[in-house]
Design a protein around this nucleic acid. Sequence first.
DNA 1: TATATATTTCCAGTACTATGGAATTATATA
DNA 2: TATATAATTCCATAGTACTGGAAATATATA
Lengths: 121, 121
Amino acid sequence: MDLASAADKLAELGHTTRLSIFRYLVKGGMQGVPVGEIQAALNVPGSTLSHHINRLVKVGLVKQRRESRTLYCVPQYDALIGLIGFLQEECCVNQADEPGCDDVLSHDCDTACDNTQINVN
Amino acid sequence: MDLASAADKLAELGHTTRLSIFRYLVKGGMQGVPVGEIQAALNVPGSTLSHHINRLVKVGLVKQRRESRTLYCVPQYDALIGLIGFLQEECCVNQADEPGCDDVLSHDCDTACDNTQINVN
DNA sequence: TATATATTTCCAGTACTATGGAATTATATA
DNA sequence: TATATAATTCCATAGTACTGGAAATATATA
């Protein structure tokens, strides 16, 4: 992922309502959640919600699937994974031979199988 | 990290100039980078740069240390790690017994020691 | 003290974002 | 066709962000 599209995604997630929407969609799973259910759960007026969902769709974090009158919103895991990957590779693992974030990020791996030293670089 | 402060950090990283600044600081390492060096490297007017750096400082992604006339900007890895952790835990690992992002995110761990099945939940 | 360097704060203009009621579109059903 | 449901688009208003020149602050040195 390039810097510009990473910034776009970060900006859209950088709003409490939209971040809440995305989190709710993830909890709902891959089959998707109807707009109306999000509206009831998060208590956001319809038009406001629609604007926010549209922004998430525009940057590829959410896709929509219509089933008769109901629009299902589906979180795009790949987009988020790509974003996390950008942050880890471009903004975390550190090119100056210093610890950076590697120690903390590889922590789960180390404790899960504490035999090999993993070099993330 | 709670949702509100995650959103704050995401919003500040969601701007190409600020994301470039943060990435440049990470490349520079933990000793920090003078404001003037960032200005020369990214070719941003001083006052504009100062505004952007201040926003990164306000949400805890950057700290500053003065050494005589020079202000060094230091990236705060912990803040970014916390943010990545929030995204992984709240928006990626999936509560509905579906694959979610786990398969992709645990890939490095699995290949590093392909003996145990790691349960991220 | 006068001057130079490093950076910020002040200020103002322009642009974009957020919000939500009202009207509209899409679809289903009586 | 008339009515109901699901969600969007239209529209206007208010607020916030972005930008950068000019003036101010902080510090060092001649």
